[in-house]
Design a protein around this nucleic acid. Structure first.
Length: 372
DNA sequence: GTTGAGCGTT
């Protein structure tokens, strides 16, 4: 169970983070769903992303099927089956305080945000400091145009365990006499997912994933043949993580076939997340994936008074490079390799160095996971 | 001063 008893007394904030990092996409109790993904064309987008909501002001209401329950948040109570409505639901506690943190964005695995950094601190200083908490993979202090520290930055650890560890220390971390503000790293802007020439907006293509799984792409919609429809045991949210509060998934913008997303109303049998798992299946079902669904951090109360939650997405990149299946077309790869950007003369430009193909990505949940 | 620039616009 989670958290372990010894963590039961931790402050709420920490507990919430721990809960978050224990989710399957962080290698939590849902197993390790991470898969490696191919290199993205855009050097600006190094991280691998999956749709992964982490915050919510929207809680499942009994008798309503439209709320998409995607994850549970750990409490120190006894575990309950999150798919069953609790007679006494725990009060929802949004993971992110709307007033204090990013309201939506893209969560980056193994990375933490560090605010309150002394302005004279450089990245090497920070690396040294944080190395005592784990294996630091990357340090980034955000500077303004003039190169002056903005007082915050990002530490990427090699493992989520390290990131988790530092979160436990978050409340008491001081550096150069200043208290550090530490939290999960969330990109508030989605960058570097260009309109892809390999995924035109119209036409039908018959593709396979790099693992050989066939799918059809038509009019911006990817159709996956998937095995079972209603009998897929929910693997996410991890029911073993326990009760509530609950996080909610909503559709997010993305490129079709780049990101797999839940429909606005996740109906079993209609749609399925993620990278297909079994090429062997040939069940006659098509799962509809809406394309170009825009994530909107709106706060308009929806039908039933459900306030759309602020979302975070796990950062992801192209899960699989599609391969032409039965239709041959040539696509010009949007390649920047070997091309000098026009703006390369800008004194501020430098391509990111942390672009890695081996970064991992979590497998998003299947549709049925959203349905209580 | 606390959640990531830059070009210029596919």
């Amino acid at each position: 169970g989670f958290p372990p008893p010894l963590l039961a007394g931790l402050p709420d904030k920490i507990s919430r983070w721990l809960a978050f990092f224990s989710l399957p996409h962080f290698g939590g109790e849902g197993g390790d769903p991470r898969v490696s993904v191919p290199v993205h064309d855009d050097p600006r987008e190094p991280e691998d992303v999956v749709n992964c909501p982490i915050t919510s002001a929207c809680w499942p209401q009994r008798g309503r099927s439209t709320e998409a329950v995607t994850a549970t948040q750990t409490t120190n109570q006894t575990q309950t089956d999150s798919l069953s409505p609790s007679p006494n639901p725990v009060s929802p506690v949004p993971l992110n305080n709307p007033t204090s943190g990013p309201r939506y964005g893209t969560v980056i695995p193994n990375r933490i945000f560090v605010g309150g950094i002394d302005f004279k601190t450089n990245e090497n200083d920070l690396r040294k400091f944080f190395s005592q908490y784990g294996s630091v993979k990357e340090v980034k202090i955000v500077n303004d145009r003039a190169g002056v520290s903005k007082g915050y930055g990002f530490i990427t650890f090699e493992t989520q365990e390290d990131a988790q560890k530092i979160l436990q220390e978050a409340e008491k971390l001081n550096y150069k006499d200043k208290k550090l503000n530490i939290g999960p790293a969330i990109r508030k802007q989605q960058v570097g997912i260009p309109r892809s020439s390999i995924m035109p907006a119209a036409g039908t293509m018959y593709l396979t994933t790099s693992t050989g799984y066939p799918y059809t792409y038509h009019n911006g919609v990817a159709y996956f043949h998937t095995p079972e429809v209603t009998s897929v045991p929910p693997s996410w949210p991890s029911r073993s993580i326990s009760s509530s509060p609950v996080m909610v998934a909503q559709p997010v913008y993305q490129q079709p076939a780049y990101h797999y997303q839940a429909p606005a109303q996740c109906i079993p049998g209609q749609w399925q997340w993620g990278v297909p798992q079994s090429p062997a299946s040939s069940a006659p079902f098509l799962y509809l994936q809406p394309s170009e669904v825009i994530y909107q951090p709106v706060e308009i109360a929806q039908d039933g008074g459900c306030v759309p939650p602020p979302l975070s997405l796990m950062e992801a990149s192209v899960p699989e490079e599609p391969r032409l299946h039965s239709v041959r077309r040539s696509f010009s790869q949007p390649s920047s390799v070997g091309l000098k950007p026009r703006y390369s003369r800008s004194p501020h430009f430098h391509p990111r160095k942390d672009f890695r193909a081996e970064d991992s990505v979590s497998t998003p949940p299947s549709c049925t996971d959203f349905v209580k």
